[in-house]
Amino acid sequence: MATVPLKVNRIGLEPQLYKGGKTTLCAGCGHNSISERIIEAFYEMGVDPQQVVKLSGIGCSSKSPAYFLGSSHGFNAVHGRMPSVGTGAMLANQKLIAIGVSGDGDTGAIGIGQFVHLMRRNLPIIYIIEDNGCYGLTKGQFSPTADLGSTLKNGVVNDLQPIDTCALAIQLGATFVARSFSGDKKQLLNLLKAALSHRGTVMLDVISPCVTFNDHEGSTKSYAYVKDHDDPLEEVSFVPFFEDITVEYEPGSVQEVKMHDGSRLLLKKLDEAYDPTDKIQAMRTLHETSRRGEFATGIIYIEPDRDDFLKQLNVVDEPLASLPLDRTRPPQAALDEIMESLR
């Protein structure tokens, strides 16, 4: 029998290794599309799933790590506290590649404190908010990203200001802040690939409609609403270091950002003046688009060179978790010296 040559990626792995368990989320849930893009991005970038840790809090969104990268370790933590678990895991082994999946309730309500401090630390992690403006798993209550004036199915109107997680992340010092839409396959895939090349915190807010509780006309996070109001900042083309691809681009309309791992990120600007390394402009853009009721998508802000958290802590290059005893237990002489100082 002739064997059919298997399709493999850059590191020789089959697509199957990047798939996860069968989803238990509602059919059509935006979160499922995001899982699919994560699978594609990690496969295409040739990331070793053995080195990946998937982290999440609690919610429909937080369940999704079970549905991608089935051969990676995963930790479904407690509600709103995934950042701390991810921080601990990365401190233990900085060679890991961390991807965290949260929801807008998991991040914006119970987890806002840990979110704030994660952004400040620039821990190497891709932090995705699957943002549907409601609590899916507890059946549709408002979340802190629900837009002013949006309504629940039962007619209750939201009178509170929404939290803009992108603006917050930029203000707090996150070094890669982007927004996308679960239905925009191309943009989301490219953003995820770019995220994989960034050493530091990537905060990716993905609008992801909840088809069961929040996909109706009163909702600004429904499919129909987002499709009409999506305002792409720039078209993202990503050139990984290991692939020799040239992308077509018009000189003068391309913003090149050199990534931490040496690859280049090319941002095709729709708006000629948009410079994602300009923090003030990033904030202004967020405010202006939101005033118009639109979502700015794409990379909103990027700062590629800041030291990540492990560099700041001046930690040895090897994973702390597997340092041998002779490097983690000081010698007898050290204890003797301490004892002498106490006599």
Binding site: V78, V85, T87, G88, L91, A92, A321
Partner: peptide, 13 residues
């Protein structure tokens, strides 16, 4: 949370 994450990833935390 950090201690549990680190312990899960094999460190003494």
């Amino acid at each position: 949370g950090m201690v549990i994450g680190a312990g899960w990833a094999g460190a003494r935390a």
